[in-house]
């Protein structure tokens, strides 16, 4: 116990560094960029960043749920494509009301997620492999359903979802705020959210405490699929076409945002605020590098360094606590 008392004390400042470190990093980058590039700190640029970030953030919220339970979902990028293509096929002008493509698109993603959850809970195959499989299936289905061609000529009502503005603020930002609030409440305030942390923290102990493992895992993968579908629908609407090749490697950006945001890949920790900040940090950095005319090749290198840096910091933190 002597160690416990003292590591607890020692953990105090470290914990708060962890909690606010990301926010400080984010603010530092923003301040640095606004000093170096006058165009950075403008209302217009801020809305650009937020709209760019929103698609990735929605995916990252879903992935955060999954990673907290100790799983992983690689299929979200493909689900973006397939649900986008499906939604687009129902979104031609003068066919169905706009609610139909939205619902059908969402159902597509939910079905994918439920399938992931079903295979993960009823077999011993690791989630990494299962979702690697559905990633490939999803991409294939998107190409089959669209016959490999973009699905264009979409209704104005549908295009409004990802391209329109309400009260001068893009719809995407409104949706981002609403979904963030919803996900944060699920994670922090509901029994399901608590169970997610429990399952990721110690599956065996969770089971012994009466946590319904199967239900929790089904729920997180289904939620993740649903959020991926929402991203897919919004992306389709924003670019006014259902692209079978949309969302390529989006799963990596989403996982990156979650990890930078402090979600541990070993499960049991993570917050929606962290993930949102992670996605914003990625968005701000790539926006800033754009403004500074840094080539996108270099941007990838920078992003890789940030990922490793975030995880190394996190693991240092873990060792100090152990």
């Amino acid at each position: 116990m002597e160690n416990n008392v003292l590591t607890y004390r020692a953990a105090g400042p470290l914990l708060s560094l962890r909690r606010y470190g990301l926010l400080l990093a984010f603010l530092a980058v923003c301040i640095g960029l606004s000093l170096t590039t006058p165009r950075f700190l403008t209302w217009q640029n801020a809305t650009i960043i937020l709209t760019q970030v929103s698609i990735n953030a929605l995916l990252a919220f879903g992935v955060t749920f999954v990673i907290i339970t100790g799983g992983i979902d690689l299929s979200v990028g493909s689900v973006v494509a397939v649900s986008g293509v499906v939604a687009a096929s129902f979104a031609h002008p003068d066919t169905y009301p706009v609610i139909v493509p939205v619902v059908v698109g969402l159902l597509t993603g939910l079905a994918f997620g439920a399938f992931n959850g079903f295979v993960v809970t009823s077999s011993k195959v690791p989630p990494f492999i299962v979702t690697l499989g559905t990633m490939t299936i999803g991409r294939g289905l998107a190409l089959i359903l669209s016959k490999g061609r973009p699905v264009s000529n979409l209704s104005d009502a549908f295009n409004f979802l990802g391209g329109g503005k309400v009260l001068g603020v893009p719809m995407l930002i409104w949706i981002l705020i609403a979904v963030f609030a919803l996900c944060a409440v699920i994670l922090r305030k509901t029994v399901l959210g608590r169970y997610m942390y429990a399952v990721g923290g110690n599956e065996q102990a969770s089971r012994a405490s009466g946590v319904p493992l199967r239900t929790v895992k089904m729920a997180v993968y289904t939620l993740c699929g649903g959020l991926a579908a929402l991203s897919g629908i919004l992306l389709t609407s924003r670019i006014t076409t259902g692209q079978p090749n949309a969302g390529l490697s989006f799963e990596l950006d989403a996982i990156t945002a979650a990890i930078i945001g402090g979600t541990s890949t070993s499960g049991g920790t993570g917050t929606m605020t962290g993930t949102l900040l992670g996605a914003l940090l990625i968005g701000v950095i790539s926006n800033g590098l754009d403004l500074l005319n840094v080539s996108s090749y270099y941007q990838q290198v920078v992003m890789g360094v940030i990922i490793i840096g975030a995880v190394v910091l996190d693991s240092l933190n873990q060792t100090k606590k152990a």
Binding site: R194, Y197, A198, G201, N202, S206, R207, G268
Partner: peptide
Amino acid sequence: ASGFIPKMSVRENLTLGSL
């Protein structure tokens, strides 16, 4: 192995079975 969730607080562990 099966008693508590190490990353969770005393509070969260205590109410895990009766949440």
